[in-house]
């Protein structure tokens, strides 16, 4: 049977008349949504800019660790955040990427269609993009067997053999999601499991699951599409080939901080360095969620960082409001 995930719509016409905001949020995931909620409740004029709503939460199938909500899906939680913010009248501009962020007197936010908006304070909460393995064959077979979105692409591997690369929560959840489609799942991970035990416990009921820890992927092989991977068994030092029809790469994320290069201090991984109040090295610019140095990439942590940033920006504007 079919289900239907209707998303709320933001009124766009306000962007025709209003070009300046007290607090602009770049990013539509948990950090950005919660920041918008807190800021608008404080009376700030707020706008959100994001290509789409939901961020990485949208790619998550099951969510079982958001306190007070015993079980939901990433899509439902994301839509609940979105709806809550829209109900408070926050305008959200979707469908366009922010292509430039500059600080003159105010911050100038330029979209890919050339439109420019200004804001006295900005929250940068763009999250992360899927990390790639960085092995030969990966670019060649991307979307020809190699996928970075289990919820999107699992249906293409019905009754086939797929590899899941990774050992964290997203890899373990990918295995659980794929069990409904694939006939065989092989996990390949270069070290030990880091996933929550409660997710790993679900593996007991999955048939045809093979787990290769301490195993490193060296190369992705194929012809017109992916056919397998060459791996190194680290304890024995031996190489071998695992044949498979597809592979889901779930090895974490890289921060989407490219707009901040040269603008604020980033660490060696490209994450934005923030104070406990989510301030960056540039006055009036805040960062929250997976784009920051905060090591635990979790929905509730991103949301809470968004709230902190909004409150800190409110405080800042009380002393600096023009």
């Amino acid at each position: 049977m079919f289900d239907f995930a209707v998303e709320s719509q933001s009124e766009q016409s306000i962007f025709d008349s209003q070009k300046h905001f007290d607090f602009a949020v770049i990013g539509g995931g948990p950090a950005g949504m919660n920041a918008a909620l807190y800021a608008v409740r404080k009376g700030l004029s707020v706008a959100v800019f994001s290509l789409e709503i939901g961020g990485q939460l949208h790619n998550t199938s099951e969510v079982d660790n958001y306190i007070g909500i015993e079980h939901t899906t990433g899509g439902k939680l994301s839509e609940a955040f979105h709806h809550h913010v829209l109900e408070l009248g926050v305008p959200i501009k979707t469908g366009h990427l922010v292509s430039r962020l500059e600080k003159k007197d105010d911050f100038h936010i330029t979209l890919d269609n050339g439109e420019t908006y200004t804001a006295q304070t900005v929250l940068y909460a763009t999250g992360g993009a899927p990390r790639k393995l960085g092995v030969p064959g990966e670019a060649e077979f991307a979307n020809k067997g190699v996928s970075y979105c289990t919820t999107c692409d699992a249906p293409f591997f019905k009754n086939e053999h797929v590899i899941v690369a990774g050992g964290g929560n997203s890899a373990a959840e990918s295995v659980v999601d794929l069990a409904a489609w694939a006939s065989k799942i092989t996990v390949v991970h270069r070290s030990q499991w880091r996933a929550d035990q409660i997710i790993l416990d679900q593996f007991k009921s999955i048939d045809g699951l093979e787990i290769n820890l301490e195993t490193q992927i060296l190369e992705i092989l194929g012809d017109t599409k992916m056919r397998g991977v060459r791996v190194l068994d680290k304890p024995s030092g031996e190489e071998r080939i695992i044949e498979a029809d597809g592979m889901f790469v779930e090895i974490g994320n890289i921060p989407k901080s490219e707009l901040l290069n040269g603008l604020v201090d980033l660490n060696e991984r490209g994450e934005v360095i923030v104070t406990p109040n989510q301030e960056t090295s540039l006055e009036g610019l805040y960062a929250a969620g997976d784009v920051t140095t905060q090591p635990y990439k979790q929905i509730i942590i991103s949301a809470s960082e968004g709230a902190v940033a909004a409150l800190a920006a409110t405080q800042y504007l009380m002393h600096h409001k023009k």
């Binding site: 366009h96 890919d112 020809k144 996928s147 999107c152």
Partner: peptide
């Protein structure tokens, strides 16, 4: 050769993958 979505095919010759901005 679709195994990842969204896959956008324009005039059967040009391909884009992912939710691309209108640009």
């Amino acid at each position: 050769n679709v195994s990842g979505v969204p896959k956008i095919v324009i005039n059967d010759t040009h391909e884009l993958v992912g939710n691309q901005p209108i640009q």
